[in-house]
Design a protein around this nucleic acid. Sequence first.
DNA 1: GGCACCTGCTAAGATTTGTTGGCAGGAGCA
DNA 2: TGCTCCTGCCAACAAATCTTAGCAGGTGCC
Lengths: 116, 116
Amino acid sequence: MNLSDLTGDELTKVLAALSNPHRLRVVAAVARERNYVSRLARELHISRALLQVHLRKLESAGLVTSTLEVSEDGKAMKYYEVVPFALDLTPRSVIRLAETITVATEEEAGQAKGER
Amino acid sequence: MNLSDLTGDELTKVLAALSNPHRLRVVAAVARERNYVSRLARELHISRALLQVHLRKLESAGLVTSTLEVSEDGKAMKYYEVVPFALDLTPRSVIRLAETITVATEEEAGQAKGER
DNA sequence: GGCACCTGCTAAGATTTGTTGGCAGGAGCA
DNA sequence: TGCTCCTGCCAACAAATCTTAGCAGGTGCC
């Protein structure tokens, strides 16, 4: 995942996903090694319910992916792994991305700065 | 401002500051040219009160700086400009930064999983 | 004085996020 | 059957964020 693949809206989503201590640690943990929910929760010392919420947010931002697998002993395990990403944030890239923000920006797109 | 200058806690603050459409546009606008509050609010079509809140957040995250200046005609103007930053976010850098997160992490550093 | 700029503040409401606890289902194993 | 492990979901509360409206102050100019 690269900055040039993203729209401004997607970027805010990705940044929001990363702007939380828990989620940052989750990404780090999953980046070290793929892991399943219950074990990850144990290693990070947080509740499973909480972890799932954070994982869902990370996944919907596209930072991690999940695979439901069945272990040898028949247990269902949901494995998460990190999506390789390289986000190079600079004033320059922000300028470019800000142009693609659609939230509450449509009006001024129509006028650009002309009338008023 | 560089990733290697930041702790994990500071990073979450910076990312939180950037993970908002308004603030992303503010950073972009200020990166194009330094500007003062009222004019910036007009150009972005948002209220001054709202803009000030966002600017304060960006400044406390270290992404912009402000200077109170007095124009030729004696008006006080608060100019904002962007702080050059280069944040290269990758799974690798996240792993490193996650280790420096202190929020609600002290306990487990002390116990690791022992008592409680 | 009245108007047009500039700045700052705060209170209050609406909305979103974070977190917990509980309940459900399924599989294997003694 | 009972215990342990895995998964998922939902209700509900607490806490943080976002946004607006309104107040205050200052300057210069007609």
